[in-house]
Every structure is written in C-alpha cells, then in structure tokens.
Amino acid sequence: MRHILSILVENEPGVLSRVSGLFSGRGFNIETLNVAPTLEDGVSIMTITTVGDEQIIEQIIKQLRKLVTVIKVVDLTEVKNVEREMMLLKVSAEDGKRAEILRIVDVFRCKVVDVGFDELTIEITGTQDKLSALINLMQRFGIKEIARTGAVAMRRSMQ
C-alpha cells in the first residue's frame, strides 16, 4: 500500500542523505520526496511517499525515528489528509492543436504559465490521479518535458 510520511527534520547538511541512505541501504522504495523549510528556523519538512506492506512501513517509520536529525514522523495515511502535487508540463502546441489544449486546460482548472511559437507550459496542482489524467490527455499532442514536485500533504482539521 502507498503511504505518505510527513517528516520534520533538522535543517542541516547531510540530513537528506541520512534519510535517503536509510531507504536505499535497507532496500526500501521512495516514490516521491519533497523537502522545504518550515516556519521554524532550522527545521524542514520532508514529505515522502513510499510503498510497502505493513511490516515494511512500520520498519521504515521506526528507522526514520531512530535518526538523530529526525524530529518527528507522522504517517498521514492513517488519518484524513489533504494531498497535493504540482507539475509543470510542456506540450507541443502547433497551430490547430492549441485550441483543443486550452480547452483541456480549462476543464482541469489549471493554467498556462509560458507560451512559445509551437509549445505551451501548463501548471497544474492536484492529486496524483489528476496529474496522471492530464498527462494521459496531453500525450497525443506530444509532451516535451515534465517536472513534478512530488506529493505534499497535511492532516485535515476535521478528522
């Protein structure tokens, strides 16, 4: 099963490699990983999505908690959560295709953030399913490049 782990870490050199090394060294998988500073000085938040059975996830969480530079680990899959990912997608948009692409952008409520003579860059935010759906639809126009942030997530206020 896929799990979303929210990990508070000390923001210091090496902390990312401690966490990623733990996954690679023990044969665990990282699907997505996102790191950014929090409001508190010196503390960053990492969101990792990973796949494994209950025993593996339990072991991953315990191993993460064992790292001295990890302050807190929460498995957001265990609670109601809101999860979002952002993606930039550059798609071929020669004359004749452009109107169709813009219609899809409209339906997905995403937006165009850059325009070239024969291509468009689209910014989309949503769940992984929504992002995958857009990729599927855009494939027939020719996707040139994508960049994704990986999931970020939070516990919902109303549980």
Partner: peptide
C-alpha cells in the same frame, strides 16, 4: 531498547 529491532 531499540524499537527497530522489534518486529524486524
């Protein structure tokens, strides 16, 4: 003493 040893 080490939670990671348990259920490993």
């Amino acid at each position: 003493i080490d939670p990671t040893s348990i259920q490993k």
